[in-house]
């Protein structure tokens, strides 16, 4: 675990806790983005700078970005906040 990986790991953990602790959907979304950036950076600095690492980081980054955009679209579709609990009871009403 070289030094930059540790910094990226810290960012991941911060993002993780923000995504769970986040108050509203937006709060959680921000947490997820932070965590995403952290993991991609972590992957990027992980291996010796060989084309493989670069390729993987690129691919992982693109897919993560896609997911986050989809999450953003869903968040916008839901007007109002998302319930905290198991998401069944309120949904039924």
């Amino acid at each position: 675990m070289n030094a930059p990986m540790i910094v990226a790991a810290v960012v991941v953990v911060v993002g993780l806790s923000a995504s769970f602790a986040g108050v509203a959907i937006r709060g959680r979304l921000r947490g997820l983005v932070t965590m995403g950036v952290g993991t991609v950076v972590m992957l990027g600095v992980a291996g010796p700078t060989r084309p493989a690492t670069l390729g993987m980081t690129l691919m992982a980054g693109i897919t993560l970005a896609g997911m986050l955009v989809f999450a953003r679209i869903l968040a916008r579709l839901i007007d109002g906040d998302e319930p905290d609990r198991r998401g069944i009871d309120e949904a039924r009403r």
Binding site: M1, N2, M5, A8, A9, V12, G15, L16, S19, F20, I25, R28, L32, M35, G36, G38, T39, V40, M42, L43, A46, G47, T53, M56, A60, L64, M67, L68, F70, A71, L74, A75, L77, I78, E82, P83, G87, E90, A91
Partner: peptide, 27 residues
Amino acid sequence: LLAATRYLYAELVASMTVLAGIALIWH
């Protein structure tokens, strides 16, 4: 939509954790 969002968020968190792990393995 609410169910899907909740599902997607959990998937995202899980995927990123796996990715972090992959980074460690690759390293």
